[in-house]
Design a protein around this nucleic acid. Structure first.
Lengths: 254, 254
DNA sequence: TGGCGGCATTGACGCAGATCAATCGAGGGA
DNA sequence: TCCCTCGATTGATCTGCGTCAATGCCGCCA
């Protein structure tokens, strides 16, 4: 119920967390900032929370703020005039949302899980950015990383089969979960699926039904197990990697 | 014959062109550079030419240089282990190839027409970059533009029909040609198709046959005319835009 | 406790685009 | 001049995935 969720939108100027204690301090846009630069950012930042399904910005809208994902997952999507939708990026904690010098958002940003953002008013951020080469450097680096990810995704969308798409997606989630320590490694490797089938379909350029069928197929082939519709266990990561159509090169997890 | 073309690769330190006279001066990475910064770049730049089909860099290779496309078209592509290929970007004059701080190329770069590059040795360029906020700013801006283009392309690859893909591609070429004054506007709008059917297929996530069939279909529908397999005339741009699946909004050419 | 709405699964069927294969035209070299 | 190669077109057939539709499952509210 988007209407209800809108009401819950919180301007939330909570008791300040310290940047120095921040969980994404060493990966976010502020990674290279020294103490003074960090103090500048610390002074102007604020937090905002969103509920699953809640819109953060709409395509074509002017955004007065930009900032980092602290917690949760945000989907960036484009919608064609007739309603076909393609998710063009998933933003995880430490990813940066919004672009300096571009007030108008080219796509929708929607929270797919409960989300917490660390935000800056656009004008203030741009002022700091002018004075901070460390911030500028990190921003360029992150933009190039996004570009790499987008281009990898183009290969997936343009050339992979439905089965390979699902497998590739699971590989990415597994890697991310393992890297962040959110995965159970005790017995194989298990992690949460933060998206609905519909959101997965939008991301992979498929339909809900195909997503469902291919997940079932992977399950029946023994490549994955479903502890729950939203929780996956991968008994043999190499088998999954193999199904993804990528080289089974040095891509191990641990 | 790649072998032959390799031989023709030219280390080409030709008589210096002046940056000030350069055709891409106001659009390339040097756009915002002042006279001193430009002089720095001028001192270290060199040109290199490539023939159609010739490889510029191979995926996974270390590149000792980076720079701008001065003339021609370069395709950036990824190849899957089993040979499926997806072109992830077309680089036109003024576009920047190579990335600071990333010595290893993540994709192949191939000249699809005769190409002329304005290059810098990586180490030298990075030294100038550290001193030049104007260069850094432009580089970030260009990276964000590339990211936008990549994400638009994701919509095309993930959600558009073959017909819409071809039409969208032609719209982009038409716009570019019109913007650069390479198009005949006298009678409708005509421009060159710089790619082979195979290169188009790689870019659009299709097969050669489907590309050919859809071009024929557009021709039979009267949306385009073929003056030659490599030259297109668009009698009614709005009809083409309509076939591309985009809004026929303020997207006119002239 | 039962009904309802949202998400997911499963089945039947059709079609857009891939695959396999033949043909054509244009350059280019002997 | 002929032949060879390469790019492009066209046809016949196959198939992966989309579409349409029914069913199941779970949490929520009355």
């Amino acid at each position: 119920m988007p209407g209800l969720q809108k009401l819950e939108l919180r301007i939330a100027c909570e008791p300040k967390e310290r940047c120095a204690d921040c969980t994404i301090r060493h990966r976010a846009v502020c990674t290279y900032c020294g103490p003074q630069e960090l103090a500048l950012l610390d002074a102007i930042k604020f937090y905002r929370n969103y509920n699953p399904g809640q819109e953060i910005v709409a395509a074509g809208e002017e955004t007065g703020f930009l900032g980092s994902v602290v917690d949760g997952v945000v989907a960036l999507s484009k919608t064609m005039p007739d309603g076909r939708r393609q998710t063009v990026g998933l933003m995880f904690p430490s990813d940066f949302i919004g672009r300096p010098m571009r007030p108008v958002a080219p796509y929708d940003a929607v929270a797919v899980t409960p989300v917490r953002l660390c935000l800056f008013a656009r004008s203030r951020f741009e002022r700091v950015l002018k004075e901070s080469p460390a911030l500028a450097r990190r921003l360029l680096e992150m933009a190039l990383d996004e570009l790499d990810a987008a281009r990898d995704w183009m290969v997936l969308l343009g050339r992979k089969t439905a089965q390979e798409k699902i497998s590739s997606f699971l590989v990415i989630l597994a890697r991310r979960a393992a890297a962040l320590g959110n995965a159970e490694l005790s017995d194989g490797l298990s992690f949460d699926l933060p998206l609905t089938r519909e959101a997965i379909a939008d991301y992979l350029g498929l339909t809900i039904e195909t997503v469902s069928r291919q997940i079932t197929a992977l399950r029946k082939a023994g490549v994955i197990e479903l502890l729950d519709t939203r929780r996956v266990r991968v008994p043999n990561f190499l088998a999954l990697l193999d199904a993804s159509g990528e080289d089974a090169d040095g891509g191990m997890i641990d």
